[in-house]
Design a protein around this nucleic acid. Structure first.
Lengths: 142, 142
DNA sequence: CGACCGCTTGACGTTAACGTCAACGTAAAG
DNA sequence: CTTTACGTTGACGTTAACGTCAAGCGGTCG
């Protein structure tokens, strides 16, 4: 075994010289999903790990994407929409027209996220007033 | 036609004396969903409109619930989870034990919503730095 | 009175996001 | 060299959230 490994039950970095890689099982376990889920994301083109022969090899880039995907899911975005934002993040931005398109897309996403933020603020505010009423009622019962 | 109606293409309040009611078509149109969707929510027990004979009659209470449902959907909550929060809002709160249960539930929901808010803040922050980089690149192209 | 409109119920279809199962390859371990 | 563990490709199953007919009922308009 080579290389300084921080260990601790985590997935272990392979390829002593290069950057660390992970197997599908390690990735799945670490992100709290099944290997089927990971494969599903690949089928949809959300991630595209390298192959050593037929075996999938995951790198940092894939982990970054998985984080984006799972956050998107927590936020309730459909995977297709998650794809558009991932594609946005590594779309070609060489030409001015492409950059302007990116900026436009970003504005769209911003608007969407801010709508959700408002919804969340509203929901939290309602919960708070409801909780206050509950506490009042509880106090009055004593 | 009786009663002060603000009109304007909106659904019109019926039942001159009592409180306003709406048909399923009006409700659906106003909330931007299909009547099938409204019926689906009823099948899941999320709303339970009155009946005049066989026809559904929607009141303010149903509209409140529909607002909760649709906001829950925008936030990506499954309808079953939406139901739990709706049920929470009009659950019995006469006894202290019930009020304490409510407060506990509220804390759960709060935690969930705050996680989502963090996710959204993160996503917005990333979008912002990405947008800044895009604008930089764009400036440098001139 | 017939036609039409809106409402209702039932039942089957569809899409997204996986779950699950079978069958196979391969590489290290006994 | 066989067993065992992990990985891979299909392919079909499942659940949620509706969509989409089909068929029937009840008022009202001409």
């Amino acid at each position: 075994m080579v290389g300084a490994v921080t260990s601790g039950g985590d997935a272990i970095a392979r390829a002593s010289g290069g950057d660390p890689t992970w197997t599908i099982a390690e990735i799945a376990a670490e992100f709290g999903v099944t290997h089927r889920t990971v494969r599903h994301y690949e089928e949809l083109g959300l991630i595209s790990p390298e192959r050593r022969g037929t075996t999938r090899i995951y790198r940092r880039r894939d982990r970054t994407r998985l984080n984006l995907i799972l956050r998107g899911k927590r936020l309730g975005f459909p995977l297709e929409q998650v794809r558009t934002i991932i594609d946005l993040y590594d779309s070609p931005r060489g030409k001015a027209s492409q950059l302007e398109y990116c900026l436009a897309q970003i504005d769209d996403r911003r608007a969407d996220l801010e709508q959700r933020r408002r919804d969340i603020e509203d929901a939290l505010a309602e919960l708070d007033t409801f909780a206050a009423r509950c506490r009042d009622d509880l106090d009055r019962l004593r």
